[in-house]
């Protein structure tokens, strides 16, 4: 009897392994066949001006941090409105994955672009960290107190990511740069 239940469990284990493998195999195949246009379609629209306004409140256009007093004009309520609250931040988080995929797309053509794709991945994790903190704050009822600090930092990271990615594609002389600029 014990051996029968053992065989049933092993059977379930094998079915689970086969199902999960199939799922990820199909997913990998889909992403390998993803076209440039499909990737851009996955980007959720975000108001670029709002992103730039929030980011440039604390950094210069060069990416250097501003000094206190010079900038830092946005209050938490304005940041909340410009970004569209936690939902806007979650959109930003989803777009990060697309930014990584865009870097990976270039990597398929030029494998040495891996270094940049790696850095973009780290940036995306940074944003996930900020959004995770805010989700935690939302659960404990402290969202508004934490929103400005974490959200603005996430926006700065996102803003820099988009700038770096555009720069990378522009250096590569990628013919569809204009589409990317429009989408970002």
């Amino acid at each position: 009897m014990r051996n029968v239940s053992f065989v049933v469990l092993v059977g379930l284990f094998l079915v689970a392994i086969a199902a999960v493998s199939l799922h990820y195999y199909l997913r990998a195949r889909r992403s390998a066949q993803t076209s440039w246009g499909d990737l851009l379609k996955r980007l959720t629209w975000i108001d670029r001006n709002s992103i730039a306004t929030i980011a440039l409140d604390v950094i210069e256009e060069s990416g250097e941090p501003r000094h206190r007093g010079d900038g830092f004009a946005l209050d938490p309520a304005s940041i909340w409105t410009l970004l569209g609250g936690l939902e806007g931040l979650e959109t930003l988080e989803r777009n990060c994955q697309v930014l990584i995929d865009l870097a990976a797309y270039l990597q398929t053509w030029y494998p040495e672009a891996l270094v940049v794709a790696e850095q973009l991945r780290l940036n995306a994790r940074e944003i996930e960290w900020h959004v995770g903190r805010l989700r935690g704050a939302a659960q404990t009822g402290n969202l508004m107190e934490s929103f400005a600090a974490y959200a603005q930092r996430a926006v700065v990271t996102y803003y820099l990511m988009t700038q770096h990615l555009l720069e990378l594609y522009s250096h590569a002389g990628f013919p569809k740069l204009a589409e990317l600029q429009q989408a970002l």
Binding site: V115, V116, Q119, N123, T157, L160, H164, E167, L168, H171
Partner: peptide, 16 residues
């Protein structure tokens, strides 16, 4: 492009 990519990588590291 190789040079530009490595410059960009350093810039990203610095940002992070």
């Amino acid at each position: 492009m190789r040079t530009q990519i490595y410059t960009l990588q350093k810039q990203l590291e610095y940002d992070l």
